[in-house]
């Protein structure tokens, strides 16, 4: 294992200390008790608090999305392991400005169970909590025989759009509904060129030959649904985009936000090659890419590979997407 770390067990705590030192204008990092990252000005009175959380190793998600116009707090777990209910409870209390708190939960058993316990605890303390579970990964089929689709790329878009709605002081029910609608209209699929190494595991989660790739991966270094010989960017983009387009389905005349995400180890030059292919495919189907996001935003440590997310836009989503945001990971208009 070759990593820029001190000790595997200190990675998350030291990363959080780094974030605290780097962005005191944006966030506070609470490390005395359960770990969480919170907006510097939290709680914002009268505003719905928007929280997310999950295992570490997906940076900049979620901690890098805490700030004005996006998340009020993020709860980082150990690498690829969901955080614990006490973190979520403390974060919920810290962002409660009297208008209730929304939990944005990626659909993984660990995240769902821990957030459920946290919501129960917060409600017992008199805080109104709603939760929206994000499950946009079309690589997972047949929900009856699985834990359901994973929450992947649409999470980033949901956090941005939902955060903008909360910033406009919309009530909790509306903010939650917007989040649900983003999830309902977003679809993703990912692929890996390499595996990745969880610091405390010390070796790659799976082995991938020089000329192999995994299609249908999630964001935890887990193997995907199929392994196949490496193909060109055009073929790979087709393999990812087709199931996404067919699933919603996205139709001719639709306007979309196209998000080409790097898994952590893939350079932007390759992501733009993929974006170019995606733009051709969308054009061929009469779908207009009205907004885009390209870069590593929901990563899987140093894994090489990418995911594609398409979100069907409406005027409200577009307005909320364009609204100002000021976080370490996304920043415009402020």
């Amino acid at each position: 294992m070759k990593k820029l770390i001190n000790k595997p067990e200190d990675v998350v705590a030291e990363e959080l200390q780094g974030i605290a030192q780097a962005h005191p204008d944006l966030v506070r990092v609470s490390m005395d008790g359960p770990f969480y990252i919170v907006r510097a000005d939290a709680p914002v009175q009268g505003k719905v608090g928007v929280i997310s959380g999950g295992g570490s190793g997906h940076e900049p998600m979620h901690g890098g999305f805490v700030g004005v116009g996006m998340l009020d707090a993020a709860c980082p777990g150990a690498v690829f392991t969901s955080p614990t209910p006490d973190q979520m409870l403390e974060a919920t209390k810290a962002v409660n400005g009297g208008a209730g708190v929304l939990h944005i939960v990626k659909n993984y058993t660990g995240d769902v169970l821990n957030f459920e316990m946290a919501a129960d605890l917060a409600r017992a303390e008199g805080i109104t909590v709603e939760a929206v579970v994000i499950d946009d990964d079309v690589a997972v089929k047949d929900s009856l025989y699985t834990a359901g689709r994973r929450g992947v790329g649409a999470t980033v878009l949901a956090e941005k759009i939902t955060g903008a709605a909360a910033e406009q002081r919309r009530p909790l029910a509306e903010v939650a509904e917007i989040c649900r609608q983003v999830n309902a209209n977003g679809r993703s699929m990912g692929m890996a060129l390499t595996s990745c190494t969880v610091p405390h595991a010390g070796k790659p989660t799976f082995e991938l030959g020089e000329n192999e790739m995994e299609i249908g991966i999630g964001i935890h270094g887990e193997p995907g649904r199929t392994r196949m010989p490496l193909k060109t960017a055009a073929e790979i983009t087709e393999l990812l985009a087709t199931p996404i387009l067919d699933d919603l389905p996205f139709k001719s005349g639709d306007e979309v936000l196209a998000f080409v995400n790097g898994m952590g180890g893939t350079p932007l030059i390759e992501l733009y090659v993929v974006y170019n292919e995606l733009a051709k495919i969308c054009k061929g189907r009469g779908i207009k890419i009205a907004r885009n996001l390209i870069g590593p935003y929901i990563t899987s440590l140093e894994m090489a590979g990418c995911s594609i997310t398409l979100l069907k836009l409406n005027d409200e989503f577009t307005r909320l997407w364009d609204a100002p945001v000021k976080t370490a990971g996304l920043r415009w208009g402020l």
Partner: peptide
Amino acid sequence: LVSTVGGAAGPL
């Protein structure tokens, strides 16, 4: 366990 394990195994 609930407050230190995380993952699915923590709540379970």
